[in-house]
Nucleic acid binder design. Structure first.
Lengths: 218, 218
DNA sequence: ATTTATTTTTAGATTTGTCTAAATTTATAT
DNA sequence: ATATAAATTTAGACAAATCTAAAAATAAAT
């Protein structure tokens, strides 16, 4: 399995998860910053290896085998991210690019031992769940903050946009995973929210709210 | 810089160090388990990038730039080996293959932080020195055990052959780095040695002795 | 000093992953 | 329903890294 193949499987997994239907060639090309024709070529290859199902012009879905590989890459990526943050004191906005490389290191034993060193974490630094060794994903009942009713309280459990830009913005505003957030008011006009986060009152934009996951409590 | 280019530079460095002269195309091919024609192709490429000096049919040497790159790869390789042994409890015969992959991860910050986590080790698990960030190599006065005079005492500081086979053999015979070794007798006929290692007496073959480095004491 | 053997390089082919440009299929809009 | 637009695939090309087979240069041996 080449790095490129692994990257395609990972991307198809992520896109498929979001849409819950066959993934379009163009969507993959956009996501991977490559050309649709390159995607078609790779799909053909993955299809021959029985890693994806593909009918011409109909998009792709991962086969069971393909899903297994994708989840193992995602597992590695997220475990390495935890390592970088917990053991090497990287900040959460710096780890993605490095984990993007580390996820392709081939050694099951290495990942088992890394998992143990990190004490079997269930989530990565952005709140994304870490697939288990046998490819199971913990599904939590988290919701986007902009979809929560006024008056409800939740704990910030993850980010939808994990770009460095957004993460730095959250740092600057002292918004972190684990923070308790109560929605005090919603502005119809622009979707902005008035929230109580820990002991502070603040206003956040609709864009920001739509990129924060919370798990409701009480 | 591709993985392949990095591997060539590393190999040329190691072979050059051993011989202290221009490195032959065939030597590189043998070492890397590839064909001489492939080596010639790559030499041409590295030469165009000013990473090696090359005159046709005369072998290659690393340029300053090439040496810098080679040492940075070796630094990464050896730091990762320390990590695998010290933090993940791998045994010293398991780490080479994994470090062979990890050495190509690109992030200066990662290596700095790894170095700090490991508390700036000077040697890898096989006793090989770890180049400093600016490419300096600590040279120690270690000698091969088979070249030591009868009656001399030394501390085992490294292995010349770091194959898994040899390392496992050393484990089985409870020979480890840091052990104090006194040469009691040498057998002319086959080069075997009678040694006192820590509190034990033992016989080791000439082959074994020629793959162990010691630093003399007293 | 030639001949023979070894080493190294060249020439041309192959594989992988990518690309551009053109053709084909599917979707959208009048 | 047909024309137009968008998405996808095909065809052919290219760069990287390798290979085989043959040619050229160097080294070794008589």
């Amino acid at each position: 399995m080449t790095h490129s193949e692994e990257n395609y499987l990972k991307t198809i997994y992520h896109l498929g998860k979001a849409q819950n239907s066959a993934v379009a060639t163009n969507a993959i090309a956009d996501q991977m910053d490559t050309k649709p024709s390159s995607v078609t070529d790779m799909i053909k290859k993955l299809s021959e290896k029985n890693l994806v199902h593909h009918k011409k012009y109909q998009g792709v879905t991962l086969s069971e085998k393909g899903k297994r590989v994708a989840l193992s890459i995602i597992r590695k990526h997220r475990l390495w991210e935890v390592f970088l943050v917990e053991k090497l004191q990287f900040s959460w906005d710096e780890v993605h690019e490095i984990a993007e490389q580390l996820e392709h290191i081939k050694s099951d034993k290495l990942i088992d031992k890394l998992d143990a060193l990190l004490e079997y974490p269930k989530f990565d630094p952005h709140g994304d769940p870490i697939p288990s060794k046998n490819g199971l994903l913990e599904e939590t009942a988290k919701r986007l903050l902009n979809e929560v009713e006024i008056g409800a309280t939740g704990v910030c459990m993850g980010v939808k946009d994990s770009s460095s830009k957004f993460l730095k913005f959250l740092d600057k505003n002292a918004i972190a995973l684990g923070n308790r957030i109560k929605v005090l008011d919603k502005e119809e006009y622009d979707g902005s929210l008035k929230i109580q986060i820990e002991d502070r009152l603040m206003h956040i934009s609709g864009v920001t709210a739509s990129n924060l996951y919370v798990e409701l409590i009480e």
